[in-house]
């Protein structure tokens, strides 16, 4: 099987030749496409730093082979803002000081975008914390992260209501 795949990454279709089936989506993004916003923490699916959206769902990109995802639509932290306008989750993370060193932040933000899209947590802090438990923050910014996710959830819900 030729190791050539097509991915739509942050809205842009890309044809990618893989020289090895071992390449994960994480390594593809970081090492071959220079999209280094997605972070490698544990590389074993335990920390969530590598969270991206694949076809709208948040997954750990370190545990996903690129070759398995031919045709997928990928959204990373680099594709979240609209020009200079930050995504509501990005704005909320700044407003609530939801980070310290920042290493886990792209994964936290992508996970929060996924969580809000799933629509299971609403603005219940306990459900938000549970829904974000796959993203570790060793600086311990969890209180701010929970507040930021709840505020972004409210902002996005109110935007959706205005649009309706």
């Amino acid at each position: 099987m030729p190791l050539s795949i097509t991915l739509t990454i942050n809205g842009e279709p890309r044809r990618i030749d893989l020289d090895d089936p071992r390449v994960t989506l994480l390594d593809l993004l970081r090492e071959r496409l220079d999209l280094t916003g997605t972070k490698k923490g544990c590389d074993r699916g335990q920390c969530g730093a590598c969270t991206i959206l694949v076809d709208g769902r948040r997954i750990n990109s370190c545990l996903a082979l690129a070759i398995s995802h031919d045709g997928a639509e990928i959204l990373t932290i680099e594709g979240l803002a609209r020009g200079d306008a930050l995504h509501p989750v990005q704005q909320a993370f700044i407003a609530h000081d939801a980070l310290q060193c920042g290493y886990c932040t792209p994964g936290q933000i992508m996970s929060a975008v996924g969580l809000i899209g799933e629509g299971q947590a609403g603005d219940d802090p306990e459900r938000v914390r549970e829904g974000m438990s796959g993203n570790l923050c060793r600086c311990g910014a969890y209180a701010g992260i929970t507040e930021a996710v709840i505020e972004a959830q409210r902002a996005l819900t109110s935007d959706a209501e205005k649009a309706a």
Partner: peptide, 9 residues
Amino acid sequence: GASAQLRNA
């Protein structure tokens, strides 16, 4: 079980 990311996959 696991995390939301893992359950999604």
